[in-house]
Design a protein around this nucleic acid. Structure first.
Lengths: 241, 241
DNA sequence: GTTTAACGGATTGTTCAACAATTATTCATC
DNA sequence: GATGAATAATTGTTGAACAATCCGTTAAAC
């Protein structure tokens, strides 16, 4: 049965010119990154070197190299002599996430370069979010929300900050995956995002930044509250399996 | 003839167990990081897998794993089928560095948590910088300067932001190493740093942030100007060794 | 019956040797 | 002096091997 999975996971959309696996390790890293982001590999689950190497059709050494880069992105946690696990962020990680966001996002709103194209893009995103809310699609709402905040950081024009933000948003996704009951977390924030874009469009930078900080504060509080609820509700909180 | 960057380093790792080999790859990564930071491995120099693995007493595979993490920190650049090289940042990288700093540092000054201990620490740092300036020690001045700005980011309380800033400062060091003639870059900024700390102490957050942005603007301009000078002076830009 | 000790299996950490693929270098040829 | 083929050197990747460590189970001791 294991071998079955091996052949099965021979992914790679071969359609258009497959990106030469120039550097297989990097390729494997992106594959795993995608799989974690897609929720196929849930937080806390162990990534066995043997299983994965055969499943992906690469050697253990190459896989380990990929693990090194993923660990550097803190997408994955490495416990010496125990193995690597999909990161499963808790309350402390959530606080750290918002510490970062509370600095970068308002800074971008205050000092970033707001161009008409970016505003147009943001407008499209908030419309998408509104449509998703009307349709009741939580995942689409979450996507749009993350896209908007990623775009906000994009105002900085900095690749590094964008990368950091994307990492942080990926971690957020893990937080949601790790929650048993997904609350309707995003719907109340759609309007705030609309307001944010309006302020940016109107050139009200200070108000935009202040609003962002307030938004981030309440979002963090809500998330932490939910996490605390779940922790108290589920006593034996050790691993889904 | 090839005067490869042959690191003559007798490494006796198995001696009296220094640091736990808990993960040799990580250990090797820190060793290389330190050596690059110390200027022993200069920007652009090639890190041969064979030479380094024997010099450090580890296998090529383990070394490669270390390379992966260093590449993730962009301390090192990997060119497929060519090898890994110590990063040698140019003008574009400098612009990116300041893009990041211009967001993070003022944000930290504006919204970070300024405690008496941190202020005390910053005070000590600026005094160190002043002493270094009086003594005419450029390296000490550079160290103090970087320490101060690292401390500023420390105001955010965020580990991720601190890490990002440290990475950025490490890249700055590489920029300096890559410059043939090291200009007296830091001395004019000592007083600005004094002023910054004073403003933070006085609770003048807005002024501190604005001053920081102005400082970063002029520092970037000066650095870029110097880089341009050197580039026009030295036609053969490629070829450190 | 509970705690402790020992054993065995499984997995990670690391090395080594090998080979394909690519790049760099040498050398003969025009 | 350029051109291009032959050759050497390096990287990319694999597979097997072994030590070290952890985990669960069994055996022993109190």
């Amino acid at each position: 049965m294991v071998l079955e999975a091996a052949a099965e996971l021979d992914n790679e959309p071969t359609g258009s010119g497959s990106a030469e696996h120039a550097h297989t390790a990097a390729w494997i890293a992106t594959v795993l990154r995608g799989r974690i982001a897609a929720g196929e590999l849930t937080p806390g689950s162990k990534l066995s070197e043997q299983s994965l190497s055969t499943a992906l059709g690469v050697s253990r050494n190459t896989l380990r190299e990929a693990f090194s880069t993923l660990a550097g992105e803190s997408i994955v946690t490495r416990i010496p002599n125990r193995g690597v696990f999909v990161a499963s962020p808790g309350a402390e990680e959530v606080r750290e996430i918002y510490r970062v966001r509370r600095m970068i996002e308002p800074a971008a709103a205050l000092w970033g370069e707001v161009t008409p194209e970016v505003l147009e893009n943001m407008g499209a995103i908030v419309r998408r979010a509104q449509a998703a809310r009307d349709a009741g699609s939580v995942p689409d709402m979450a996507d749009a929300n993350q896209a908007l905040h990623s775009a906000v950081v994009g105002l900085t024009g900095s690749e590094s900050l964008r990368t950091l933000m994307d990492r942080v948003l990926a971690e957020m996704r893990l937080v949601f995956y790790a929650m048993a009951s997904a609350p309707d977390f995003h719907s109340h924030y759609v309007d705030r995002n609309v307001q944010l874009v309006e302020r940016l469009r109107a050139g009200q930078r200070d108000e935009a930044a202040a609003g962002l900080r307030a938004y981030l504060d309440s979002a963090e509080a809500e998330l932490l509250g939910h996490l605390a609820d779940e922790a108290s509700q589920d006593v034996t909180s050790q691993g889904t399996r």
